[in-house]
C-alpha cells in the first residue's frame, strides 16, 4: 500500500524494541522478542540512540530549524550523533559552501548541547579524567615524599 509510510530514527526503533521487552538480559528467553530483533537491538544499543531521549531529540529538532538542513541530513545527524566537525562533513552535502567553518561548528555545538554523548565517547572522557586525576595524585605523592625526606611535616591532603 505504502512503500515509505515514514522514516524512523534509530532511537525510535530501539525504543520500540525496548517496549517489546528487549534488554541486555543474558537469558533472553522471557521477552517476546525474536532472535533477529535482538540482533538489531544489540547493534542499536551501541550507537548514539542508546543515550538519546524523546525530549533531547525534540529539543534538537526545534533548535536545528534555524539551519537549512535536509530531512535526510537531520535523520543522519540524529542516528550518528556527530561530536566533532570531521564527523559532520560526510553527513552534510557541500558542507563548506553551505555553512562555512562557523556554521559547521555551530551545528556540532548544537548536537553536543542537545543530544547526549554516545556511551563510548563518555567512556573516553571518563578515562581521560581518571588519567588526569592519577597524574595529579602522583605529583602530590612525590611532593609528600620529598617533604618527608627533607625532615618536614607531612602535608595534610584531606
Amino acid at each position: 500500500l505504502e512503500c515509505n509510510a515514514g522514516a524512523l530514527t534509530n532511537f525510535e526503533v530501539l525504543d520500540f524494541l525496548r517496549a517489546k521487552g528487549a534488554s541486555k538480559d543474558p537469558t533472553r528467553v522471557i521477552a517476546k522478542v525474536a532472535q533477529s530483533e535482538y540482533k538489531v537491538y544489540d547493534y542499536l544499543v551501541d550507537t548514539a540512540a542508546s543515550v538519546q531521549t524523546r525530549e533531547s531529540i525534540n529539543e534538537f529538532l526545534t533548535s536545528v530549524k534555524q539551519h537549512d538542513l535536509a530531512k535526510a541530513e537531520v535523520l543522519n545527524i540524529l542516528n550518528i550523533g556527530p561530536a566533532a566537525e570531521v564527523e559532520l562533513y560526510p553527513i552534510i552535502e557541500d558542507c563548506d559552501e553551505r555553512f562555512g567553518d562557523e556554521g559547521v561548528l555551530e551545528i556540532v555545538e548544537l548536537v553536543k548541547k542537545t543530544l547526549p554523548l554516545p556511551l563510548n565517547m563518555k567512556q573516553e572522557e571518563i578515562t581521560k579524567v581518571d588519567e588526569e586525576t592519577a597524574t595529579l595524585k602522583n605529583e602530590k605523592g612525590n611532593q609528600i615524599s620529598q617533604d618527608q625526606s627533607e625532615g618536614g611535616e607531612q602535608m595534610n591532603t584531606s
Binding site: 500500500l1 505504502e2 512503500c3 515509505n4 509510510a5 515514514g6 522514516a7 524512523l8 526503533v13 542516528n79
Partner: peptide, 9 residues
C-alpha cells in the same frame, strides 16, 4: 536506515 512500510496481505 529504518522505514515503516504499510502492507495489505
Amino acid at each position: 536506515m529504518f522505514y515503516l512500510s504499510k502492507i495489505e496481505h
